[in-house]
């Protein structure tokens, strides 16, 4: 132990600023060493691979306008595999995996009983919430990057690769298009931050992780359905899924950042609101699991 005055084993609170990082590192390692996380990332990686294989093996060319956006362009340029796969996974597959991770944050620990041992360590309730959220956000990024990376690999392996024609008609090189892919991945990761915060908040209300996961996923579906109902038009700009597919602006020259910033602002609003709810619930909760 540190050679600090006072009772044995006690060091001044300020002596170890690194210890918050220590819990963060531990949180990430528990999340990313878990079989379930790997299974979800592998399933996400399978989406672009499946798309690429299906396009490659199919005998007739894809007619423009049929199937998901950009699907028809894959045969000419493999770089579109990743973009197509991201479009396909945004409505369901990504929210599904994010719902599992975010819904599990607190409820999963409560279910295992480890929550009480983290709290008597003492981890600090607010600190634990922040670290859990940071880890869930890291998963959002890892999930979208997995789709983008697997898409790039599958595209390069199966199709010709060359300059990309943007939606605005301009042409960009392979390097620049890789940057655009990463920007789309970042856009989608940001899109999922609000949902993660909602999952975290729900997770503080229950000791049953499956319940929190299901509720989070159902909410993501409800939000998208509501976004498609013209009767609820007044509500649309407030739905956390409203800008989920709005990343086409990143495929123009010059890049239009309006949808990116609108999306980021909306997600920040959800983070604040859901975060306040999670804080209010978790800091006053009796941990009886």
């Amino acid at each position: 132990m540190d050679a600090a005055p006072g009772p044995p084993g006690v060091s001044p609170a300020s002596a170890l600023p690194s210890s918050s990082w220590s819990l963060m590192a531990s949180e990430l390692s528990v999340l990313f060493r878990r079989l379930r996380t790997w299974a979800m990332l592998l399933a996400l990686a399978a989406i672009p691979i499946l798309i690429a294989a299906a396009v490659k093996l199919s005998s007739h060319p894809v007619a423009p306008g049929r199937g998901p956006p950009f699907l028809d362009r894959i045969t000419q340029n493999g770089l579109f595999v990743g973009v197509t796969a991201m479009v396909v996974s945004v409505p369901l597959f990504l929210p599904l995996t994010v719902g599992v991770v975010a819904g599990d944050t607190i409820a999963g620990e409560a279910n295992l009983g480890t929550l009480r041992y983290l709290l008597v360590a003492p981890a600090g309730r607010v600190r634990l919430l922040l670290i859990k959220y940071a880890a869930a956000a890291a998963f959002c990024l890892a999930a979208t990057l997995t789709v983008a990376a697997a898409g790039a690999l599958a595209g390069v392996a199966l199709f010709p690769v060359g300059p990309v024609i943007l939606l605005s008609g301009d042409t960009i090189g392979v390097g620049e298009s890789a940057v655009r892919s990463l920007l789309i991945a970042a856009y989608i990761a940001v899109s999922l931050l609000g949902l993660s915060a909602i999952g975290l908040a729900i997770s503080t209300f229950t000791d049953v992780p499956v319940g929190a996961m299901a509720a989070t996923i159902v909410l993501s579906v409800v939000s998208q359905v509501a976004d498609n109902l013209p009767q609820l038009e007044w509500l649309h700009p407030w739905l956390f899924s409203h800008y989920w597919l709005g990343f086409a602006d990143l495929l123009r020259q010059p890049i239009s950042w309006t949808s990116f910033s609108d999306n980021a602002l909306l997600q920040a609003g959800y983070i604040v609101a859901a975060g306040a709810l999670a804080y209010g619930k978790f800091t006053s909760k009796d941990v009886l699991s």
Partner: peptide, 23 residues
Amino acid sequence: AFYPFLSGAANLRRLDSADLHAS
């Protein structure tokens, strides 16, 4: 109460890292 998917030693390291004062 422990994480079933971690080893005994990894579990202890995990819970210890939650202690702000543990070096």
